[in-house]
Simulated assay, not measured.
Amino acid sequence: MSFARVRALVVVGVLAVIAMVFVGVTLVRDTQAGKEVASDCQEGDKLADTRLRQSKDIKINVYNGTDTVGMANTLKIDFQNRQFKVLKAGDAPKKVKGIDEAVAILRYGPKGVGSYQVLRAYFLNEAQPEFQLEREDDTVDVIIGGEFKQLATITEVNQALSQRDPESTQLPPRTCADPNLS
């Protein structure tokens, strides 16, 4: 091996060691480790979980808002067959205004924003949102309306998720995306 080649290898080796030292120092002194603060949050805003979850990770309550007996239990079975975690099923606790003209109403809080988006696709984006800012859990209440026929197929759900209008993907008022969940 010639002296020029040895010198070139030494120079490349030294540069590689210097680069590794800089990377190591950068990783050790990283000030962004831990929790990030959402840059678009205003004072009093709640952090929203906007992740589109898989059905097996979505918790729901199914309520029948119609006069049809047994609708909640039938839909509970349909959701369970699609791997949703159904916590409760039964008649709606009280009469919901406008439910007879709706396919469904989906009630959710800041921790259920992404789950709401997925569930809305199962109703072909025709379910009405009812955001509850003070809600602390990630469960979504599904209240079946008079216009409900059936849940969408997996293909229809995927199409509905890909064809969401920009308005439906906006964050609810007084929330901002949680950067630690993105």
Rank of each mutant, 00 (worst) to 15 (best):
I58V: 04
C41Y: 03
G44P: 01
L52Y: 11
Q54I: 11
L47S: 00
V86Q: 00
V86Y: 01
K46R: 14
R82D: 01
I60T: 00
A33R: 14
G70D: 04
G34A: 06
A48M: 04
A48E: 01
S39D: 14
A72D: 02
G44N: 05
D67F: 08
I58R: 01
D40K: 03
V14D: 10
T74Q: 13
K76V: 04
T50F: 07
D78A: 11
V37S: 13
L75M: 06
F79Q: 02
D91A: 09
V17Q: 07
T31I: 14
I18A: 10
L87C: 06
D91V: 09
T68H: 10
V17E: 09
V25G: 12
D49H: 02
A33W: 12
G65H: 00
N64A: 02
G44H: 03
F79Y: 04
L47F: 04
F22C: 15
T31F: 15
V28E: 15
V17W: 08
V17D: 08
K88R: 10
R53M: 08
K85S: 10
D40M: 05
D40H: 05
E36L: 13
F22S: 15
I18E: 07
T68N: 14
E43L: 11
F79I: 06
D30W: 09
T66H: 01
G70S: 05
A72V: 05
S55K: 04
A38P: 03
T50G: 05
K59S: 15
Q32W: 14
M71V: 10
V69R: 14
A48C: 06
G44E: 04
A16W: 04
E36H: 15
S39I: 12
Q42R: 13
L52T: 08
T74K: 10
I77Y: 09
T26D: 13
Q83N: 13
V10I: 14
L52K: 06
S55D: 07
V62P: 00
D91T: 09
M71C: 08
V23Q: 12
V10M: 12
A72T: 04
F79R: 03
E43W: 09
V28D: 13
D45H: 06
V21S: 05
S39L: 13
V12D: 10
Q80I: 06
G24I: 03
K59A: 11
T74P: 09
F22V: 11
D91E: 09
A16D: 05
N64F: 00
G44Y: 02
D91Y: 06
Q42H: 13
D30L: 07
V17L: 15
N64M: 02
Q80G: 04
Q83A: 15
A89C: 06
L15R: 06
T66L: 03
V17I: 11
N61G: 07
V69I: 13
F84T: 01
V25K: 15
M20K: 12
Q83S: 12
G44L: 05
